[in-house]
Design a protein around this nucleic acid. Structure first.
Length: 435
RNA sequence: CGGGGUGUAGCUCAGUAUGGUUAGAGUACCUGGUUUGGGACCAGGGGGCCGAAGGUUCGAGUCCUUUCACCCCGACCA
């Protein structure tokens, strides 16, 4: 893409109400635009990042044999009445009537829809297990949306559901999905923990959350310094028993309650950190299959409700989480897997024919190799383009500038902000090594 | 849903206590010129129903009433 033709409206100033780094930088760098409370439009850069995350998810889902479907966003309220959740969800569930005065809802999560899709179609234990997922816009009319993409009302979520004939098989699938989820977050380049969590209002038992470690996270988690143990602090301390007023904010609080700060799984020590919940997997059991009368016949010809698992991952929230974990005072620092463009080529002075020619040449050559490359061919000054590149957060920028007179260009690494001099003849090769 | 705050140019904000030229600045944008290694400079220019509706007044961005939107704290949050 040529920067001179791209729709990337960057600004010096952040929206006055933005608090979080991800909100500020995604707005300033021209990724997102707020439309109303909790509603955002995605601009080209954001769409590219979202697509990258989605592709990794699709890839890992294919690896574990989950199949993609797409359920309609608008759902008949009947299903929600049938499951009993129409009241449970309350006003968070947006409802409306169509022209025939029939009540519909906008899907906030799709257990009902998925169970409805499968019931009476899969009717034998021989066809189990089954794992279906989708990546889809969800809508929850949150009381108080905030923090940009972190807690919007409309958001993109990957939601998957598995159907089993036995608890053992669900347990097996749960572990497979947990491993897949870990691979996804690892591939995205994020530091995270899997923690034990509360099952919440959706029901069921056996629940784990994927927490991306970030100071701005809304959840407090206890993590071990030696092993992989981690728990949402509310679950760890069994907050229900402690009462509503209690709030654990330091490891001292944990020591007070538990007597020590030892890991329950090994001899390591626990510490508290903040996390952003980007994934939540849990064993639903038969909650929904019973409510919606979704049964299969077992080997004895006896009717049984499906034993289910559910696996959610917040795609749009992940976009924000990447930036919460990877930014500095100058802007976004995308990881290799999430960067909207792998390489930015900056021609310092486009009036300089030699610079311009080399920029064009390198750009076309990289395009020929299917490298996702941006060519900053705007008639702007060096400083302006650098600030812009830092704000957007391209992992690498090739600077073609005045050093070209010595036959060299530079590679600027966003993460370290270091520049490396490279002789012109080697630049293509060097770039190909980086992407 | 309780408590608080803010709505003026695309964006960030002055101006409102005490009503009174043609409503301002910075930035962004357009033209021309100078610049070209860290958001540069000079000159000229376009852009506003002062959130909306009603009212008070000779006169309202400013005062009064109603309403809408957005944000913050809390409660809530698969």
């Amino acid at each position: 893409m040529r920067r001179s033709r791209a729709f990337i409206p960057t600004t010096k100033e952040a929206p006055s109400d933005a608090q979080l780094a991800s909100h500020i930088f995604l707005s300033r760098a021209g990724f997102i635009s707020q439309v109303a409370a909790g509603l955002y439009s995605y601009m080209p850069l954001a769409k590219k990042v979202i697509r990258k995350i989605e592709n990794i998810i699709h890839d890992e889902m294919a690896n574990v044999g989950a199949e993609e479907v797409e359920l309609s966003f608008v759902a008949p309220s009947d299903l929600w009445i049938e499951s009993g959740r129409i009241d449970k969800f309350g006003k968070e569930l947006l409802r409306f009537y169509d022209r025939k005065e029939k009540l519909f809802v906008l899907g906030p999560t799709h257990e009902e829809m998925m169970v409805d899709l499968v019931r009476n179609r899969v009717t034998s234990y021989k066809n189990l297990p089954l794992n279906l997922y989708q990546i889809k816009t969800k809508f929850r009319d949150e009381v108080r949306p905030r923090y940009g993409l972190m807690r919007g009302r409309e958001f993109i979520m990957k939601d998957g559901y598995s159907f089993h004939a036995s608890q053992e098989d669900l347990d097996r699938e749960f572990e497979v999905l947990e491993a897949a989820y870990k691979r996804i977050i690892t591939r995205l380049g994020l530091d995270f923990r899997v923690v034990e969590a509360d099952s919440g209002a959706i029901g069921g038992s056996g629940s784990k959350e994927l927490m991306v470690i970030a100071d701005s996270g809304e959840d407090t988690i206890a993590v071990c310094d030696k092993c992989e143990y981690g728990a949402n602090v509310e679950v760890f301390l069994n907050m229900d028993e402690l009462g509503e007023d209690f709030d654990a904010n330091s490891i001292t609080d944990i020591k007070e309650i538990k007597g020590d700060d030892k890991c329950p799984d090994c001899d390591g020590k626990l510490s508290l950190t903040k996390g952003i919940e980007v994934g939540h997997i849990f064993k639903l059991g038969t909650t929904y299959s019973e409510a919606l009368k979704a049964n299969y016949l077992d080997e004895n010809g006896k009717s049984q409700p499906f034993i289910m698992g559910t696996y959610g991952m917040g795609v749009s929230r992940l976009v924000a989480a990447v930036i919460e974990q990877h930014h500095d005072e100058f802007g976004c620092i995308w990881t290799k897997a999430t960067a909207p463009y792998a390489i930015n080529i900056m021609v310092s002075n486009i009036k300089d024919e030699a610079q311009n020619t080399l920029g064009e040449e390198l750009y076309l050559k990289l395009l020929g190799e299917n490298v996702e490359v941006m060519l900053d061919d705007r008639k702007e000054r060096f400083g302006f383009k650098m600030k812009d590149a830092e704000l957007i957060g391209f992992p690498y920028t090739v600077i073609i500038g005045k050093e070209l007179l010595n036959g060299t260009v530079e590679i600027y690494e966003r993460k370290t902000r270091q520049k490396t001099t490279v002789v012109t003849g080697d630049i293509f090769k060097r770039v190909m090594e980086l992407v």
